[in-house]
Design a protein around this nucleic acid. Structure first.
Lengths: 244, 244
DNA sequence: CGCCATATTGATCGGGGTCAACGGCTGTGG
DNA sequence: CCACAGCCGTTGACCCCGATCAATATGGCG
């Protein structure tokens, strides 16, 4: 299972066999979560970190008025609470959107790694920087794009990220278990509008939704519609310059 | 000058005298920039990092249609391009909004630090995590708050950050050299609307703008209006639990 | 003094929010 | 096996926040 994390870390830097072993052994146990469960809440001071082994989680913040903003989706291979280790406190919550399995890594193990394995440390740091890069792209997406562009962009991002962790079933389909209300909270839109815009994307024949799967029918037009460039995901090393 | 960086790093962790010396010596020269000048552009692969010693810079992205989104403001003490070092390539541009002075740190120096000074490395990592935290807060701000709330929130953030680096002149005033168009690009709004909302904030007697200074007249109501909580800035250690 | 960037104001428009109702699916309990 | 509840997706009507367009101050600067 922790291979997913290794694959992730190797996106940005090669690891030695010894380092890989350290990563694998870092996960002391796994934990199964049901849908709509919080893994960590804003303000908490956790004693362990989590790697997602399966499922979809999200980072989110709640506003006083009861609104919610999802600030990022997390999928297989993602580390979801390194900031709990480094900063000692979470600035946001992390919760599941589907049932999920996470690997547990004690903080002490990570502290040891930071002490003894500079290359691993660097790889972990890079993961957090990619996270930051995605957050900046989301600011741009929400701040300056229309709802139609935003959703196209989100679908591109998720499609590329899911591909990078082997979650694209056939050429262009991936599992999609998010509700429209969750997508709305992520994109700064209302549920109703997400519904209408998804219909547009379908009627434009950019995607089809069949059951809990989305299939991209026309990657180029979807990318164009969202103004999507995958550079900010820093995945090129593994994927190569294939079709983007 | 580099004391500003030290102060920043010490916000999150104490440093030894030796570590402080390393930081001070890391800055090999300074560079003066005029207003509206790019320090680094998206896609570039820089060979040095920069600490802001004076002035205001911003991270930004340009969209195809010519729109711009500013994803964060950078002030004295901020490191603006650590991702250039770690990721090897910038996912966004950094440019000045005022004339500015930056300290230059060669990548090689930082690589040495990452090799030999785990505590310093950790402090630098924390800086990038705070940056990410701010970006997430901006996603929330832009995604789920009205223009009025957004601007109030931005003013709170800048006010707290400027205070932390000693840029609050008297009790509640700070220099404000940003144009309304720049604020608009940061908050995902139009220039016209920023103008109107700023007028509201003034007529509500939350702030006054005199020349290139903003004075907060009623911190509590401003904070309330923006739904602002400073936790995400991770500055409590230095500021203590004073008035927030 | 004239130029240019920025701030301000007014008028109009439209993207997307809000409210409300309805349909479909699933799970649950009698 | 069916009735019902609850969640989610869908649709329609209406409204408003904020964009857009355009014109007019304002102020620093060569």
């Amino acid at each position: 299972m922790p291979e997913t994390l290794i694959r992730k870390l190797e996106h940005v830097a090669a690891l030695s066999e010894q380092e890989k072993r350290v990563v694998i052994e870092a996960v002391v146990r796994t934990r199964d979560l049901r849908s709509d469960e919080d893994l960590i809440r804003e303000g908490e001071q956790p004693a362990e970190c989590h790697v997602i082994l399966d499922g979809v989680l999200c980072r989110y913040k709640l506003l006083r008025e009861g609104k919610r903003q999802i600030t990022g989706f997390q999928i297989t291979g993602d580390l979801c609470d390194l900031c709990g280790l480094l900063m000692g406190r979470m600035d946001h919550s992390v919760g599941t959107l589907t049932c999920a399995t996470v690997g547990v890594i004690p903080h002490q193990t990570l502290r040891d790694i930071m002490e003894c394995h500079p290359r691993l440390t660097r790889a972990l740091w890079q993961e957090t920087l990619i996270d930051a890069s995605i957050a900046r792209e989301w600011v741009t997406n929400i701040g300056r794009r229309t709802a139609y562009q935003r959703l196209a962009h989100l679908l591109c991002e998720m499609s590329v990220r899911l591909r990078a962790v082997g979650r694209i079933t056939d050429g262009m389909s991936f599992e999609w278990l998010l509700t429209q209300s969750e997508v709305a909270d992520a994109m700064g839109l209302s549920t109703v509008h997400v519904n209408r815009v998804l219909q547009q994307l379908r009627s434009q024949r950019l995607i089809v939704m069949q059951g809990d799967e989305i299939r991209v029918l026309d990657w180029d037009r979807l990318r164009e519609a969202g103004g999507f460039t995958p550079d900010y995901l820093f995945l090129v090393q593994t994927l190569g310059k294939v079709e983007w």
